[in-house]
Simulated scan of single mutants.
Amino acid sequence: MVGRNGAGKSTLLRLIAGETAPAEGAVTQMGAVGVLHQRHDPASGERVAETLGVGHAMAVIDRVLAGEAEDDDLERADWTLESRIAPMLASVGLSGLDLDRPTQTLSGGELTRLRLAGLMLAGPDLLLL
């Protein structure tokens, strides 16, 4: 989308994402929408896995493999996750990135690519960048 400053590009994207209500009319959203915001301040101590959006899912797998599974961990474990993470990271130029690495050690470009990989892993029907 191209337009002059103040033409409403960001407003339109916020409407599509469901982040803003229209002043008039209605916006109907069908399917999942992923949004890559321009700014992201990682929480102190956040790791790559959390920024990627797989921290909890990886913790479930780790508990099961360690023999410390909770009651519903076996049902929740996504055994395809690890095999999907590596190719997704490679597709954004982050091959071999350690999931335990602190996000704060990444450059701004690496962080943006990591967040994009996380959105693509989630599989939304529409990506707004």
Rank of each mutant, 00 (worst) to 15 (best):
M1P: 12
V2F: 12
V2K: 10
G3L: 02
G3W: 03
R4C: 08
R4P: 08
N5Y: 06
G6R: 04
G6K: 01
G8A: 07
K9M: 03
S10T: 12
S10W: 00
T11Y: 02
L12K: 05
L12E: 04
L13V: 08
R14E: 11
R14F: 04
L15Q: 06
E19L: 15
T20K: 13
A21I: 05
P22R: 01
P22V: 06
P22W: 05
A23Y: 00
E24N: 10
E24S: 14
E24A: 14
G25T: 08
A26N: 09
A26Y: 04
A26E: 14
V27Q: 10
V27M: 05
V27L: 03
T28D: 12
M30K: 13
A32V: 14
A32L: 13
A32Q: 14
A32M: 13
G34T: 08
G34E: 07
V35L: 15
L36H: 08
H37S: 14
H37M: 08
H37V: 03
H37G: 12
Q38M: 00
Q38S: 07
P42H: 04
A43E: 15
A43G: 15
S44Q: 15
S44Y: 13
G45L: 04
E46C: 08
R47T: 13
V48E: 09
A49I: 04
A49G: 03
E50V: 09
T51W: 07
G53W: 10
G53V: 12
G55H: 05
H56T: 14
M58P: 00
A59R: 14
A59H: 11
A59N: 10
V60K: 00
I61Y: 05
R63V: 06
R63H: 07
V64T: 08
G67W: 10
E68R: 15
E68W: 01
E68H: 10
E70L: 15
D71I: 09
D71G: 00
D71H: 04
D72Q: 05
D73A: 05
A77L: 07
W79E: 07
W79D: 03
W79V: 01
T80M: 12
T80V: 04
E82V: 12
E82R: 14
S83G: 12
I85Y: 00
A86V: 11
A86Q: 11
A86P: 03
P87N: 08
A90M: 00
A90R: 06
L94N: 02
S95E: 15
S95G: 11
G96Y: 10
P102Q: 11
T103S: 14
Q104K: 12
Q104G: 13
L106A: 09
S107M: 03
G109V: 03
E110K: 01
T112S: 10
R113L: 02
L114I: 02
R115C: 04
R115G: 08
L116R: 06
L116V: 07
A117H: 03
G118D: 10
L119T: 05
M120N: 02
M120Y: 06
M120P: 00
L121M: 11
A122F: 01
G123T: 03
D125L: 01
L126G: 06
L127G: 05
L127H: 04
